[in-house]
Amino acid sequence: MSLTVLVIAISLIAILASRPQINNVTVSSPLLGNQAPNISGLSLFSNKSISLNSFKGKYVVINFFASWCSPCHVEEPELVAFNFEHYSQKNVAMLGITFDDTASNATGFLRSNGATWPAIEDRSGSIAISYGVSEPPETFLISPEGIVLAKLIGPVTQKGLDSLISKSASKN
């Protein structure tokens, strides 16, 4: 009996140990190290014009999301915490881009999660294609000079984004 329990316990440990890391998965992209494609559009909240260029001098976290995407629901509290952490420092800006979603659903999703950063509706998917996005959530970290530093697929964490920014800052 005790041997059976031991075998099961070892198997569970092995299964859990072999599970892939789902958070902060950085992947390669032809965009890395290059100037980030410009983004411009109307803010979902204020209906004012937004451009990626207007964030120059700050790190920018671009997050492609959709209200229907489950991993987006998982990462949203982390993004909200990350935004709150950097809000007073004003060294990081965040920009949401909808992925195959309606403006009303996307706005509702952001509001219900307490997200206050600007977001743009990408109706034709042209912004997603210009960033090589396959499916949400995908997140890009852009340097203060406008260079693409990292591409992350799947849900991200506050800690993971902080770590990427620290790494980049220490290099400069």
Binding site: F99, D100, S124, G125, S126, A128, I129, G132, V133, S134, E135
Partner: peptide
């Protein structure tokens, strides 16, 4: 198709495939 396994954008109905087709 970037979000599919072994499918072309012509054969896929995923949102990104549809957007790529339009592009």
């Amino acid at each position: 198709c970037p979000s599919c396994e072994g499918l072309s954008v012509a054969d896929s109905t995923s949102p990104i495939a549809i957007n790529i087709r339009a592009l």
